[in-house]
Simulated scan of single mutants.
Amino acid sequence: MTGSPTRVVLATRNAHKVGELRAVLTPLLPDVEVLTVDAFDDVPEVAETEVTFAGNALLKARAVAAATGLPAIADDSGIAVDVLGGAPGIFSARWAGRHGDDAANLELLLAQIADVPAQHRGGAFVCAAAIALPDGTSAVREGRSRGTITTAPAGGGGFGYDPVFVPEGADRTLAEHTPEEKNAISHRGRAFRALAPVVVDALAGRPIHGGSGSEQD
Rank of each mutant, 00 (worst) to 15 (best):
V199Q: 07
G86E: 10
G136W: 07
Q119K: 12
G210V: 11
V18Q: 07
W95H: 09
E181H: 05
K17Y: 11
L21I: 14
V8D: 13
V51R: 14
A196N: 02
V164W: 00
L25M: 14
A80Y: 06
A111Q: 15
G160D: 06
G158S: 12
L84R: 04
A93E: 07
P153S: 06
D102A: 13
A175C: 03
T6R: 15
G205M: 10
R22S: 11
I185K: 03
G156I: 11
R62A: 14
H16V: 00
V116W: 06
A139C: 05
A11I: 03
G55D: 08
V199P: 09
E48F: 02
S92L: 08
A80Q: 15
I79Q: 12
Q119R: 12
R141V: 10
P179R: 01
H187G: 09
G210H: 04
T26G: 01
N14F: 04
P207C: 04
V64M: 05
A132M: 06
L110K: 07
E45F: 09
P71R: 06
Y161A: 02
L106S: 07
F53R: 04
G189P: 13
V24L: 13
I73Q: 06
L70S: 10
T68V: 03
A15L: 15
G19Q: 06
S4E: 15
A152H: 13
A11G: 10
L25E: 03
R62T: 15
P71V: 11
A204N: 14
D76P: 01
H99N: 12
H187I: 05
A139R: 00
V51M: 12
A65R: 04
G97Y: 07
P27A: 03
T178D: 12
G69C: 09
A54Y: 00
S138A: 15
D217I: 01
I149H: 00
P5L: 10
V51L: 13
Q119G: 13
F53G: 00
F125C: 11
G89C: 07
R98Q: 14
R94L: 06
A130G: 01
G189L: 05
A118N: 02
L109F: 08
A47Y: 10
G86R: 02
V164M: 09
V34D: 15
A63P: 08
S186W: 06
V64P: 08
S212L: 13
F125M: 15
G136H: 05
V24H: 08
T173G: 00
A202F: 12
T178S: 14
G205A: 01
E107Q: 14
A154M: 13
L195C: 06
P5N: 08
G85D: 07
A63D: 12
R98E: 15
V51N: 10
G69Y: 05
D201M: 12
Y161N: 06
G136Y: 02
D162W: 08
A80I: 02
A74N: 05
S77I: 03
F165Y: 01
G86A: 06
D75V: 00
D102K: 07
E50P: 03
V9H: 01
A54C: 09
G213M: 11
F165M: 10
V164T: 08
L35V: 00
G213W: 12
L58R: 15
S77K: 02
D101L: 03
I79C: 02
S4C: 05
D217S: 05
D217Q: 07
C127Q: 02
A191W: 07
S186H: 00
A114F: 11
E107C: 08
H209K: 07
V81A: 02
G143C: 06
V64C: 04
V83R: 06
